[in-house]
């Protein structure tokens, strides 16, 4: 049963990593929206709007870098390496 579980995990490495990535993405989008919304809707004066703009630009750049780094990783072989005990 344990070997079957490990096989399931190994064969679905990409799916597991995608689910983890989507969780990070949803949390990131939620907090980004909340912060920008608060800056623009409730901020008084110019400064909050400037901060919202800087935050959005920086978030976009970091997000693109994160997506690029995600697709560079070979998740299937990585999970296989972690799960398979060394000989």
């Amino acid at each position: 049963m344990n070997n079957m579980s490990l096989d399931v995990i190994t064969n679905n490495g990409s799916l597991i990593s995608l689910i983890g990535f989507l969780v990070i993405l949803i949390l990131y989008l939620w907090y980004t929206f909340a912060i920008v919304y608060h800056f623009v809707r409730f901020g008084v004066g110019v400064r909050p709007k400037v901060l919202a703009f800087v935050f959005l630009v920086g978030s976009f750049i970091l997000f693109v870098l994160m997506v690029d780094a995600y697709f560079t990783v070979d998740w299937t072989s990585l999970i296989e390496t972690i799960i398979t005990p060394p000989v």
């Binding site: 990070i24 990131y28 907090y31 980004t32 912060i35 935050f55 920086g58 978030s59 970091l62 997000f63 870098l65 994160m66 780094a69 995600y70 560079t72 990783v73």
Partner: peptide, 12 residues
Amino acid sequence: FIITVYFLILWV
């Protein structure tokens, strides 16, 4: 990848 996620969290 971990570094980019780490800096994204720090940025937020």
